[in-house]
Amino acid sequence: MYEQRIDRQHPGAIVFLVDQSESMGDGITGMPLTKATTVADQLNGLLFELVQRCTKAIGEPPRPYFAVAIIGYGTDQNGNPLVGSVLQGALADDWWAWTTDLAQHPLRIEERERAVEGAPPQKYVMPVWVDPFAGGGTPMCTALDNAGRLVRAWCDEYPAAFPPIVINLSDGESTDGSPSQWADRLRSLHTDDGNVLFFNLGIGGDDKMRLFDERAPSTASPHTMLLWEMSSELPEFMIEVARSQGFQISPGARGFGANADFRNVVSFLNVGTSVGHLLR
């Protein structure tokens, strides 16, 4: 299980569910940024890395080894769920965006500088696909239902592929009911290589920070407990990646985090998307 290499015949699928509720506009611990900006920056960085991983041959565009869906969820002024793809422009027509298309259709390309030891700063370009947005409620059930339909079709189309990874980034409780049963349905979907991996990260909050717990955080708030219950166990190779980043975790550790600061958001996404070694 969770061993299938990723190639054109067996592409990888990653779905990000991004909470766009009002409170995502609040600041995050560890950086002078809002939670929404932090999430957008990290998603842009991840997409950049995915595209680079698929750039293999001279004179050839990045290969279509991954499809990515970024589903934003919030509500309108009347509280009605607003769930849709965050990707814009040429990528807005489809829920999925292949790495080949992501490379060619960012929203814009920004020029930035990176520090180089003993030399002038080096200029580089940073494509941007996702801009921060915050407003309204947290219709998590609708978002999970939407993700489930997408992922189910994917598993039907690529039954031998590595199973899709669904990552939910949220800062609050669901406002359209308990997402528990939707999470169960999502995790029950599978390919021949294993069940869908559903990881949850609660961003911000005043309670104790948690990441990759293998035991239920029974003393934590009901919301934190729910996030843990909804989350899949990390496959062995993701546990290894987490350990290499300094986390002392055991088999059974879940793709779960709560009350995350900036650093934990970065670590969580690095571990939860660490499928680079599966590329062939």
């Binding site: 680079q52 750039t55 565009p61 990045p62 490379a103 580089y124």
Partner: peptide
């Protein structure tokens, strides 16, 4: 050259 090729060659 395209941005992805520039970055890939740099890496």
């Amino acid at each position: 050259a395209d941005w992805w090729a520039v970055e890939a060659q740099r890496r």
